[in-house]
Design a protein around this nucleic acid. Structure first.
Lengths: 196, 196
DNA sequence: GTCTATATTACGATAGAC
DNA sequence: GTCTATCGTAATATAGAC
């Protein structure tokens, strides 16, 4: 039922163009003129598809946040020790980050100048908080080193994960699985009570 | 010889105000009007001290880069095994990052829209490259695990280090030394061939 | 060194034709 | 759905008084 000719924009296809430009120039550094040039249509045509620049941002960060919170739901369903859930949430977050790379990239760079941006920051804080609770539980189980500050460890771990968006590009010889392996291995081998 | 009264701005004191606003709102999201309000002087008074917005950015990222490259010079003078230089450069980078927090924060968020920004990105790449060479040497010595990709490990390690700017604030109970300990411990215990 | 006023350009968004 | 033309605002920067 999908049309064979795919020349006109939908909000979704326009979004993919916009997000790419936002990530290259920064959201505030991107004008409607920039978007218009990149999409190959006029400024006013963009307004036919979306209400404005901020709607594009809203759609982008929503998509990223949906992916991340889905990971938290999956993680809650994982049986076993808390440390296994820590590994699971880390691995799946890397995968979502890779799968939704431009959207998550944009989310991670939001500053808080508009209502949309402040909402995104608030939801990110909620995600971080829930991850920190997982590490706390793993520490309570005795599966993480007793001498590490859990809040600090969470921040370093997800700082490492989030930094992927700064350099990872699809298929330069590295898959999401390999990335997740490297992150989990580097992080948990430094956090585990029992050494291999 | 310093004047007792310190009410008027110099380029340096104005810079410290500007960099703070840049980090709150983003460089592109900050107008001269925003800077004027934050500094408590008019827009045109700002032009008396600096040529414009981009000069403030230039001064800020230069200061950050000077700190980081000074670390590389120190590191080259450290005797012993390469892995000790890896630990040294990591620890000192954390310290510089904390000491020059707002300046490094701004540097790490630069996108590349202007000549100044592209120059900053180029110098950052040079820093990253030199650090990668250190890890490569440590791997060649057999002091890093043989199964890790060195370029990837470098990126994860310094992704973790750089992520500090996203949350660290002076003295919420954490000193630069403690931070450096945590980073080095988490990173190297996962990278070392020989386990403790 | 700081100000008010203003020149000039760029921006987000709309109007209305096709 | 896309366009050209344009409105109103906000941006960087300058002029010139004090």
């Amino acid at each position: 039922m999908t049309t064979a000719k795919r020349d006109t924009y939908t909000p979704e296809t326009l979004l993919s163009v916009a997000v790419q430009v936002f990530n290259e120039r920064g959201y505030d550094g991107t004008s409607m003129e920039h978007l218009s040039k990149a999409a190959g249509i006029s400024k006013s045509s963009i307004y036919h598809h979306v209400a404005g620049k901020e709607e594009l941002l809203q759609r982008a960060v929503s998509r990223a946040l949906d992916g991340l919170f889905a990971v938290l739901e999956e993680t809650g369903a994982v049986r076993g020790r808390a440390v296994e859930r820590v590994e699971y949430v880390t691995r799946r977050t890397v995968e979502v980050l890779v799968a939704e790379l431009p959207y998550v990239t944009l989310l991670l760079r939001v500053r808080g100048n508009t209502r949309t941006e402040r909402w995104a920051l608030e939801r990110r804080r909620e995600f971080d908080h829930q991850v920190a609770e997982l590490l706390k539980a793993a520490a309570a189980d005795g599966d993480l080193r007793a001498d590490v500050d859990i809040r600090l460890a969470t921040r370093l771990l997800f700082g490492m994960v989030n930094s992927l968006v700064e350099w990872y590009r699809p298929h330069p010889g590295t898959t999401a699985d390999q990335l997740a392996d490297a992150v989990v291995h580097m992080a948990l081998d430094g956090l585990r009570t029992v050494r291999g």
